[in-house]
Every structure is written in C-alpha cells, then in structure tokens.
Write a protein that binds this DNA or RNA. Sequence first.
DNA 1: CTAGCTATTGCAATCGATTGCAGTATCGCC
DNA 2: GGCGATACTGCAATCGATTGCAATAGCTAG
Lengths: 341, 341
Amino acid sequence: MNDKKMMTLADIAKLAGVSESTASRALRNNPVINQATREKVQQIATEHQFKVNATARNLRTQKSYTIAVIIAFDAKTQQSVSDPFLLELLGVIADELSLHGYDMLLSTSKRDDKDWGSYFLDSKRADGLIIIGQGEHDPRVEALAQTQVPFVVWGGRSGDEPYPIIGSDNRQGGRLAAEHLLAQGCRQLVFLGDIRHNEIEQRHLGMLDACQAAGIASDAVQQLSCDFTAQDGYLKTQQHLFARLPELDGIFAASDAIAMGAMKALLEHDIAIPQQIALVGFDDIAMSAYCTPSLSTVKQNTQSGGKALVNQLLTRMQGQQPLSEQLAVKLLCRQSSLRRL
Amino acid sequence: MNDKKMMTLADIAKLAGVSESTASRALRNNPVINQATREKVQQIATEHQFKVNATARNLRTQKSYTIAVIIAFDAKTQQSVSDPFLLELLGVIADELSLHGYDMLLSTSKRDDKDWGSYFLDSKRADGLIIIGQGEHDPRVEALAQTQVPFVVWGGRSGDEPYPIIGSDNRQGGRLAAEHLLAQGCRQLVFLGDIRHNEIEQRHLGMLDACQAAGIASDAVQQLSCDFTAQDGYLKTQQHLFARLPELDGIFAASDAIAMGAMKALLEHDIAIPQQIALVGFDDIAMSAYCTPSLSTVKQNTQSGGKALVNQLLTRMQGQQPLSEQLAVKLLCRQSSLRRL
DNA sequence: CTAGCTATTGCAATCGATTGCAGTATCGCC
DNA sequence: GGCGATACTGCAATCGATTGCAATAGCTAG
C-alpha cells in the first residue's frame, strides 16, 4: 500500500485536524457531529484506506462481532468431513452471518476439551455459538445449557431440551419416506442409521409411525446401525442385508451418503432397484439426483435452516427468548423407489 | 458459571496476592517467575475458570492468532457450496491450524468488495489469508500480491505467479488420466471442464501431453466447457456429446462431480461404461467409489494439501520465503474406465 | 446585555493483557 | 561487613478505538 505502516484513528484525526473522539464519531456517522466534519473525516479515511482496528474496537465495546460455528462430529467416523450436506449448511450460515455483519469462526471439535464453549466465549473470541452435530446426545451441550452462553444447535429434538434447536422435521421426513415405500408395495423394511443420534432417531420413529399406521407388524421393520458414510452403508448392507433376501423389499437410509453406499452393494449383488428393493435416502445432496438409479430422498431445506440458526442466535443474543424450529421437509421421488412409471 | 461476571487478570492477581504483571507472566509460564508463584497463580486461574481475554491480548501483541480462509467461488455457479472436495480440504486446514494454535475465520467471498484481503488484514481480524478458488485468474489476487499481506493460494500455477501456490500436480494428473484412457484403447477423447481455471487448464494440458506423446491427432481431443457441478456435467453431455457418437470413446472430466453428471447422462442413453465410453474424473471424493459403475479418478491428497497450505503460510508469516508446492496425485482405476478385468 | 439553549467538539478514562525497566531482597564471597 | 550478582516482583506505559461528561462557541429571547 501507499502507507508503510498501518493508519490509526489518531493519524486520521490529525490529518483532519480534529480530535480522536470526533474522528471516531464522524466515521460512525454519529449525527451529533457536524455534517461537513463527518464528510471530511470520512473522505480522508477512505483516501488513506483506513480500516478500523477490529481488535481495539472489540476490546472497548466488549463484542467481537464474531460467531463460532462448531462442527461436532464423531471422532471415530469423521463423518462430517465427508458429508456434502454440512458444507451446504455451512455456506448458508456464512452468508447469513456476513449479511448481519458478523464474521464466522469455524472449528471442528477435535478440540475436545470439555471447555469448548468457554474457549470461544469466555475468551471473547466470539459472541455466540452455533453447534452443528448430527444431534448426538452430548454432555457438553447439556452443560452449556446451564450457563448464560448464547448458543443454538442444529439437530433434532428428543425431549424438551432447555436450549433452542433448529432442524428439519425429521420425524415427518421419516414418515414420508416410509409411507412412500409402503405405497410402492414394500412390506419388509430396513432402517439404516445410528439411532443414538437424535435426528436419526426421529427419522426412525417417523418410519415406525408410518408402519404402525399401515398396520405393518413391528418385527417387519429392522433397524441397523450405520455410520454416516457411503462406505459404512456399503459394508452394513453387504454384511447384514443379503441374509434377509428375498423378503426384504425396502430400505430407508438415514442419509444420502449411506443410501449410495447401500445402493452400490445392492447393484453389485444384481438386485434390481427399485423392483426388488426400493431405496430412499435423506438430505438431498447434490449428487443424489445423479447416481443411477437416481436416489429418492427427503430434502432438507438448508437455506432456511442456515438462516434460522443465525436469526435465532441473534435473537437470543439480544436477550429475547429464542425458539426451536422444525423445518418442513419434502419427499423427492426418484428412480430408486418409484416402481410404476 | 460460579462467577457472575467475567474474571480478569486483575482479579486473579488480587486473589493470588501478586501484581498483574506477575500474574500474566505466571500464566504464560515465564521462567523468570518463581516456580511456586507460578503454580499458585495457575491453580487459582483454573479454579476460577479464568480465560485470557483474547481481544485484549491481541490488541497488545498486535497479533490475532487467526487465519482467514476465503472460498472464492464463481458467483454464477456457486460451485463451492456443493463440492465435497472443498469440505475435505477445509477440514484438514481447520485441524492443522488449530494444531498450531490458530483459529480459522471462514468467508465465502460473496463479500466481493475489492477490499477482501484488507478487510481481514488491515482490520487486524486475521494475521494471514488462505485463498481457495478453483484457481481462476483473479485480479484481486494479483492485487494482493503487490502488498505485504501474507497469503497463500490453493490452485494451479499457470506462469510464475509472484505468490505461493499450493495445489496438486494437475498436469501430471491430466496426463495420468489420459494415458490410462489411451491404454484402454480410447482414441476419441473429450475433456469436460472450464479451462479458464488454472487448475483445470493444467489438467487439460496434461491430457494433451499424453495424447501428443501417443501420437493422437489433436483434433481427436475435444474440450467442452462445463461448470463444477454434476448438473452441468449432465447437461453438457446430453447437449453436446451424443452428437459425436459412436466415435467418441473416452471422457476425462475435470472433477468427480462433473463426471458423475456425465455418467448419469450416458447411462440414461444406454451407453455402456466403460465398454463404449470410458470415464475418468478428478478429486476422488468419497462418493466416487460408490457410484455404479464406480468412478475412476485422479486422487488429490487433501491431507498434505491442507497441511502444506498452513505450513507455507506460517512460514511466510515468519518472514521467510514460502515455496509453491505441487502435490503428487494418484490415478485410481475403477470400473468406469477399466475395460479388461 | 445576559441568562439559557443548542450545536459541536475535545478531554480523559476505559476495555484487559503484555512487557521494558526499575526496584527490592536475598545470597555468596572475599 | 560490604559489594555485586541473582532472583523475583511490581510500576506504569502501551495497544487503538469508544464514550460519558465537560467545555466552548454561537444564538435567541427577555
């Protein structure tokens, strides 16, 4: 740049021939300062590409204008790092935050000190927290809830958590998926996913709802635990599902990644999809429309999800009571489950 | 928490019966302070869950211990938001940064002021920049290079950029992919990707290298522009490639996402993969092993990529001369291109 | 002509931690 | 006993911007 060393407010003030206080107020367009003075200071500031030192401002104002987003994933599977769904959500959150003038501090919770929240909050690195996990019961989150820390969670409600949870209506999603499978004539179903995660549990429950409503015997619905990866979807399908052929005729996978793994295994085994086994996933990641057969799935609305997370958090930071939200989901019927055409 | 309001260093000092300076030094384990004093102060600090106010420290030390990561994507395609490859890379970067004690500020460059770097650097929000784009020639990056701002770029070299670029050896990757296709007997090839992006251009050049070495006429190699999405891969294949059947017998896609889109189109058209057309992608995203047929691809090493980005940046921030790096790539031959078996 | 306003501007404290330099106490050694 | 060295510790300035309160000037009304 032109100026060898960083400009400070003092420099600008000197150049404009005013005091620091006046310069500060002028830059923030405080109407108490004379219009002409304001313009002059502002012009000088732009000329010299002056940027307010965020650190100094933050110290003085006791705000950081930064939100920490924590991706809390299973240490074992590293699920997050490969799930495209998360990136979509992250992108939306980033945009929404910057819209509100906030920066986004991203952290994958390898940092598994129990500290967590306090690392960002107490140290004043961030003004609030957005926690994205696949909603597994996490004692650290419970602990946070006891504190004054402003945070929101992406996930699924299980009971009446004392903190705001934003997420899709997973139960409804599960219901839709199962109803669809049943409507396609499936009678022996498998749920592929880890129900220790709230969200996944909800999807499973929704599935059971639908089955019960349809009068399907509950032992006709198997649940099989599975990590959030295509790889594990593939493995679990190979290891456990082939044994149940040929009765088995419908699979509902807890995520599209899992579904695609399962699909691979089925196709390798020359099982016709959807004729012999119909398959439905969850998320609607970009790829799911482009596998073969294309994957039926329950679409999560990342757009409104991200916005809701940010807005509820900001609400909470303003001292108001934030609300949990359940976002509507939508069933997309594609080739992997549509038997008639 | 126990303590209603935030503890400050002064509080700790008072409790320990020492001065602030001593407390500060004790906490940082400065050996000039008596061992016993240090322990006492540290113990009191932990007891009261004291966390150093990062803002104050940053102001005083003139460092933020924060690196900004900028995902610069095409406004038009929003490519980044859907490409799993980016999330993988991001994850690695995040971990590596936190290993070095740095936080990560994430920004998608919707913020398309020309400012950009200065927003983070001049305002002291970050000490350095990591820019991730698919390497499209970007005037803003060129401009940054003129300044003192410490930054590194993930991408592909085109000439002798005056800034450090870390990326895969894209040319070699392209060469490997093409050699493989040729070895499978393909003679009429298509490259599917936007060569205005440095990285993609390199992949294309590598492909041409291989073809030339094999004595293939250059007009047997078509290049077709395509966004970074499965969707566009699908569309472009439908719109332009079917016309070239049946001569066309090999496709090299600039990314796995594109490849999967193309694959979909081909399969819908009942074209046998790899018998009639062999297909190779780039990246090795998690899904590529699980589509059907599984996708041959050139694997980028995100692990060493992320680490290299961080390490070169830190090197540069210490005033040393950083180096551009080209990471080795690896061809993974899977079903989409392996004709004999 | 002066008290009382209003419109602007500046002084100085403040946010919380770090650090150069000065100060004090203790110790060793001749 | 004295003197310098050694080992700690504390004082006070500093980072850069914000803001409550005081101060000044210009102006109006009585």
